[in-house]
Amino acid sequence: MTIVPVLMAAIAPGIALLSYFYLKDKYETEPIHLVAKMFLLGMLLVLPAMVIQHGVGYEFGNGNFVLSFVSSAGLEESLKWFVLVQLIYRHASFDEPYDGIVYATAVSLGFATLENVFYAFLGLPSFAALLYRAFLPVSGHALFGVMMGYYLGKAKFKPEKAGLYLTLSLALPIVWHGVFDYILLLSNWIWLMVPLMGYLWIRSLGRISRANDRSPLRALGSEEEIKA
């Protein structure tokens, strides 16, 4: 496979999934430049993550649990969460619960996309390998982003429980990401991965629907329809 087709195949899944989640915003789509910024920031997180992961492996070893829950899930989700809390959580454009999902999936898919490019060029790319990465690691990052963004949205719009929801927005993606990676290290991973991905997709679609239903812009839209 030549460079351009490999690069396009590595990038396409992340862009396609981001477009899907972006267009799921029923009431007011987010500024495209801000979503693109979060995507690029997600890409930039890959390099510090790789450096820190190397240090974690040197210090604590590379056992399956450490690789899955500490080096991968714990570190990667913490970096994404930190960026979102610092740059997006109080941003004026974050004005409805679903926006948390848009921005979190943007950061997550930016990370997954550059990671995918590295794997494509450092490994031995084939159509089967790129398809595997599109359906599993890239999709997995997107679904962990939905989880994170859903609870960030709840934290912002239910300030009385903000502490709880902020904690869940970090803890749940770490747990599920860790489970995902741990399964991939098992010899019979396919039998556990298929039901896991099905469950995560179903839960994510439910969160998308609930986040949209809680939008304060929904009532405004209904009033405008009645007046019309």
Rank of each mutant, 00 (worst) to 15 (best):
F118Y: 13
V85K: 14
Y199D: 01
A162L: 06
L18G: 00
V194T: 08
L170F: 15
V175Y: 10
K26L: 15
F94T: 04
W201M: 14
T167V: 09
E160S: 14
V35T: 12
H91F: 09
K26S: 05
L114T: 10
V194E: 01
G198Q: 05
L40N: 06
L45P: 10
A134H: 06
W201I: 15
Y22H: 07
L75T: 02
M1N: 08
F94C: 08
S126Q: 07
E28V: 00
V56I: 15
P195C: 11
I3E: 14
L217R: 03
V194H: 00
L143R: 03
Y150L: 11
S204Y: 01
T29M: 14
G61R: 08
M43R: 08
K156Y: 11
G14C: 08
A171V: 14
Y119T: 05
G198W: 06
L172E: 04
L170T: 02
P48K: 13
E30L: 06
L109F: 12
G149H: 07
S19H: 05
Y27G: 02
N64E: 13
I183K: 04
G74H: 07
E77K: 13
V4M: 14
L109A: 06
G221Y: 11
L40H: 04
V194Y: 09
V146F: 05
P125K: 02
T29C: 09
I190K: 11
A211S: 14
G178P: 07
Y165R: 09
R90Q: 15
I3V: 14
V56W: 08
E28R: 13
L41K: 15
E28C: 06
Y22P: 09
E160G: 06
G145P: 07
S68Q: 07
E59I: 13
L164W: 14
M1F: 12
F135C: 11
L84H: 07
F118K: 01
K161M: 10
M50W: 11
G57I: 02
L18N: 02
A219Q: 11
T105I: 04
L79K: 06
G63L: 05
S126E: 10
F111E: 04
L87Q: 13
L114Q: 00
F39I: 07
M1P: 10
L217I: 01
L186S: 13
K26T: 00
L131N: 11
L18K: 07
F144C: 04
I15K: 01
V107R: 04
I3D: 12
M193V: 00
V179N: 00
L124G: 07
V146L: 13
G178N: 02
M148A: 12
W189Y: 15
G63M: 12
K24E: 12
Y150A: 05
L75A: 07
G145D: 10
G14E: 01
V138M: 01
L217T: 00
F94L: 13
I32W: 13
A12P: 03
Q53T: 12
R207V: 00
E76M: 12
